[in-house]
Design a protein around this nucleic acid. Structure first.
Lengths: 339, 339
DNA sequence: ATTATTCTTGAAAACGTTTGCAAGGAAGGT
DNA sequence: ACCTTCCTTGCAAACGTTTTCAAGAATAAT
C-alpha cells in the first residue's frame, strides 16, 4: 500500500490497454471473458482501487452526497442522520454532514460548498430560506427535503404526518377525560410547527367550535423555552387539565416547572410530548409522547435520493410517514389518584 | 449559474493565460498587480469557483476530512461532532461523518473508503481494532485520535483526563461523608473505560489499602446496562452509600431501578454520573456529574488536524483536557434528610 | 469464396487544474 | 552601450480516468 496503483499498472500487469481495464471496471460489456478475468486478477493482486477523483473529473458520480440539518446537537436529529448514513453506506456513498443553525446565510454557503465538492445530491431540512437559493440553481442536482419541507411540485420530500400525530395525542387525552388541553409549541417557522399547531387548532374547533387562545403559548423547541412558556401559561391563571407539547424538550421544561410549583405530573396535570427522542423513555416519569419514526425518515430520504441519483426513479415524490403514540407515565385519567 | 465557468473562461475574459489565472488564485506570487486585479475582476463577474475535483487530481488538498465515531446516536458524541464541524467549516473544510458501531470490519472499511475519497486527513475515535489497519498504511495522511486513543508515539490525540474527573467525583462524595462508594462502569474495552476504572481503583486503595471488588460491576455504557448492573449490585446485598457511574446513561438506569425499589435519590443513595450530556440537566432530579468538555475536544481535534494538514505544525501531540464537576441534585450529605 | 455484419480492442482526446520550463522584457551593473 | 540578473508570462505536460472512433478479427450471410 506504499504507493497506490493506477489503471496503467493494471493494464500493464494484465497485458491489455487501459481502455479495456476501464471497460471491465465499468459497464463490463463487450470484453472477452478471458481478458476480463485477467484484468480482474490483476486488480486483485495489485490491490487496485479506482481513483474517485479522476472519475469525478470525467463527470462520473462521486458517490458522495450532502446532508444539511439545523444542528446535530438537537437530539431530534441524530437518529435521522443515522438512518441516512446507514442507507448511504449500504450503497457505497459517503455523506458530508453540515449544520446550518437555522441561518439562511450559513445554509446557502454550505449548499454552495457542497456543489463545489461535486456531490451527487443533497438531502436537506428545509427552512424559509431554502427556496430562495434553490431556485437560483436550475441544475439537475437531485434534492430531497427531509422532515421539514417547502410546498413545491419540483422537490421531493419525506416527512411525518403531524395531523395524525396530534390527533393520536388528543384522542388519548380525550379518552382519559381531559377537556381543557393546552398547547405549548414552537412559533410557526417550520412546516412541522405549522402543521402541529393547525392540527391542534382544528381539533379544538371541532370539539367546541372555537379555539381558546389563552390555552396556547408559542416559543422555541427548547427546554428553556418550555420553562418560559409554562410560566407564562401559569401566569395567565387559566384552567387546564393537560398539556400537549410541540416536542419532548418543551415537555421536560414543562414538567420541571410544574414540579417546582408542586403540581404533580401526571396526577394533577397530564403532559404529552412530541418526537419520542431516546431520552424520553429514560426520563422519570417516563414521557408519554408521539413517536416520530425519525430513523425511517432518514433512511427513506436517503433511499429516495439514491434512486434519483442512479436514475432508477427520477419522479418527484411526496411521502408522509405515520407517527404512533407511546403511552407511558405522564398521562393519567382525570380524577384518578395514584397515591 | 446555468453552466459553470472554468479557468479558461476566466483567462479569456481577463485576457491572460490560464497559468496566470491559476497563479493569482493560488500563491499569487510573481504576478503583476495590474493583471492580478484584472483576473480577480473576471472571477468576480463570471462567478467562477475553482473546481475542487480537478485541483485534487493534481495532488492539491480536497479541503475535506473524515470523522469516524462509534455512533452519532450515542448522546455523548453530537456535541463533539459539532465542535469538529464548526472548526472545520471555519477553515473551509467539509467533513465526512461515518459510524463504525464499534465494529473493526466497518471501521476499516470506512477508513479505506475515506482514503479512496482522497480526504486530507482523518479524525477517529480509536478502538482496539484501530492499530491493526493503521499500521498497514505507512502513508503520510494526518490522523488525530479523538477522545479514545491508543498509546503510540506516532499518533496525535486529544482526550479528557479521566484521572482528574474521577478524583473530582470521589472527592465530592468523600466531602459529603460517603465511605462506601460503588462503581458501575463499562467493561475495559476503551481507553476511557480503563482510565476511569483505574482511577477509581487507585482512589479506593489509597483510602482503605485495598479494593472491595463487591462494590464494582462492569457492563456497557447504556441505560439498559445501568439497570442490569444496579440489579446485580442490589442482589449482592453489599452495603453502599453512593454510586459513581461510568457515564450518564448508566446513571439514569441506576436511578430508575433505585426509584422502583423505593430507594430515594439522593436522600438514601447519592449518584454521580459521568459525561454531562445535555440531558443530564433536564433530568429530574438534575444529575450531579463529571462534565466532559466534549465540544472543546472536538474543536481541538479539528484544529490539530488542520494544523497538520496545512503544515503549520506537523509534530505529534498528546493533549488531555481537564474535566470539571457539575454538582446538581443527585448527591447529598450522608445523614441529612431533605424531607 | 466473397462480402456484410458484429465483436473486441487500443489510440487518443477530453475533463479542469497546477507547475516546470523557457522565453521575453525590464532593470541593474559595469 | 552591453551583459547579467531578475521578474513576469505563456506553453505544454502532467494528474487518472472515461469514451469516441477507427481498425482488426471473427462471425454470419450470400
Amino acid at each position: 500500500m506504499v504507493n497506490r496503483k493506477n489503471i496503467k499498472d493494471v493494464a500493464r500487469a494484465a497485458g491489455v490497454s487501459i481502455s479495456t481495464v476501464s471497460r471491465v471496471l465499468n459497464d463490463s460489456k463487450g470484453v472477452r471473458e478471458e481478458l476480463k478475468q485477467k484484468v480482474l486478477d490483476a486488480v486483485q493482486i495489485l490491490g487496485y482501487h479506482s481513483n474517485t477523483i479522476a472519475r469525478a473529473l470525467k463527470g462520473m458520480p462521486t458517490k458522495t452526497f450532502g446532508l444539511l440539518i439545523p444542528s446535530i446537537e438537537n437530539p431530534f436529529f441524530p437518529s435521522m442522520v443515522r438512518g441516512v448514513q446507514d442507507e448511504a453506506h449500504r450503497n457505497g456513498y459517503s455523506v458530508f454532514l453540515c449544520n446550518t443553525d437555522g441561518s439562511g446565510i450559513i445554509e446557502e454557503a454550505q449548499f454552495r460548498l457542497l456543489l463545489d465538492k461535486k456531490v451527487d445530491g443533497i438531502i436537506l431540512v428545509a427552512s424559509k430560506y431554502t427556496t430562495k437559493y434553490l431556485k437560483k440553481e436550475n441544475n439537475e442536482l437531485p434534492i430531497v427535503m427531509m422532515d421539514r419541507y417547502v410546498r413545491s411540485p419540483n422537490y421531493s420530500y419525506v416527512t411525518v404526518d403531524h395531523s395524525v400525530g396530534v390527533r393520536l395525542a388528543m384522542d388519548h387525552l380525550r379518552t382519559l377525560g381531559h377537556k381543557r388541553i393546552a398547547f405549548l409549541g414552537s412559533k410557526l417557522i417550520s412546516s412541522g410547527a405549522r402543521e402541529r399547531f393547525q392540527a391542534y387548532k382544528r381539533y379544538m374547533i371541532d370539539l367546541r367550535s372555537k379555539l381558546d387562545e389563552s390555552l396556547v403559548v408559542l416559543g422555541d423547541y427548547t427546554y428553556e423555552s418550555g420553562i418560559k412558556m409554562t410560566e407564562e401559561l401559569l401566569r395567565r391563571d387559566v384552567k387546564f387539565d393537560s398539556i400537549l407539547c410541540g416536542n419532548d424538550l418543551i415537555a421536560f421544561g414543562v414538567i420541571e416547572v410544574l414540579k417546582q410549583k408542586g403540581i404533580a405530573v401526571p396526577d394533577s396535570i397530564s403532559v404529552v410530548g412530541y418526537d419520542d427522542i431516546a431520552f424520553s423513555s429514560y426520563y422519570t416519569p417516563k414521557l408519554t409522547t408521539v413517536h416520530q419514526p425519525t430513523y425511517d425518515v432518514g433512511q427513506l430520504s436517503a433511499k429516495m435520493l439514491i434512486d434519483m441519483i442512479s436514475g432508477v426513479d427520477r419522479r418527484v415524490k411526496h411521502i408522509k410517514i405515520e407517527p404512533s403514540l407511546a403511552i407511558r407515565e405522564t398521562t393519567l385519567r382525570v380524577g384518578s389518584d395514584s397515591h
